[in-house]
Amino acid sequence: MADLDERRDEYRDFAPAGGSRLVDGLRAYRLIAGMWIRSTMAYRASFAMTVFGNFAGTALDFVAILLMFSRVDELGGYSLGEVAFLYGLSCAAFGLTDLVLGSMDRLGARVRDGTLDTLLVRPAPVLAQVAADRFALRRLGRITQGLLVLGYALVVLDISWTPLKVLLMPVMVVSGAGIFAAVFVAGAAFQFVAQDASQVQNSFTYGGTTLLQYPPTVFAKDLVRGVTFVLPLAFVNWLPALYVLDLPYPLDLPEWVAFLPPLVAVACCALSGVAWRAGLRSYRSTGS
């Protein structure tokens, strides 16, 4: 029987050189997500139902919009196609984040029941482990229906495409997902302080995506200012999408603002990263 020191030497050879935290995190994320996928497959009938449920559930918002348009031709000066365009982009971006970070709102529950501690003794970044928690493929349902609605919008709308506008489309979805990711992470960080406050996070995430499904012209100017300058959700779709549609934004902003989403996303993620670290530090110093 080899003695422990000898055994440990083997691990040193095996450990990644340098071992970047990002790479470690992604690897842990992939491993844990894989376990969750297999867990859900243990209940196949239920899984099939939840996939359908997720698709139908997230499509409900669009059904509401369709019902509205069965009674009116325009909402806030926008046609059904234009609203569908906003809706599809908001859903696709949010759906992407929801798929990747969908259970971050359970952090408070993990703090309360003490299971966060079991993550802290693992050789992987906690954020990656929490993010992968309850990873669920059923969340592809939201992305799918968002993209379907977006497809519908692209068919019915007569957009004067330029290369810049074409490029802006995928950039918009990815940056939007980044902005939502920042909200998810910041919301989870807040739960280190207030463990029962997962609903607050939901109101910014789910509430945010619902808000962005409608034209900005529908809302009060102050509300639009708030989601432009304070919590910059407007950069998820409103500002870039209106550039693509050649529609005016209710606030008087220069045109280049439409190209800011990637920068806004990076800045938001950096801020939420700071919040996360602060939250985790406070947890580790207070233990509650």
């Binding site: 209940y43 239920s46 899984f47 139902m49 939840t50 359908f52 449920g53 559930g57």
Partner: peptide, 12 residues
């Protein structure tokens, strides 16, 4: 075995 699917459908 797992009520989540039915529950979700019911909520919807």
């Amino acid at each position: 075995m797992d009520g989540a699917g039915v529950q979700q459908l019911a909520v919807l």
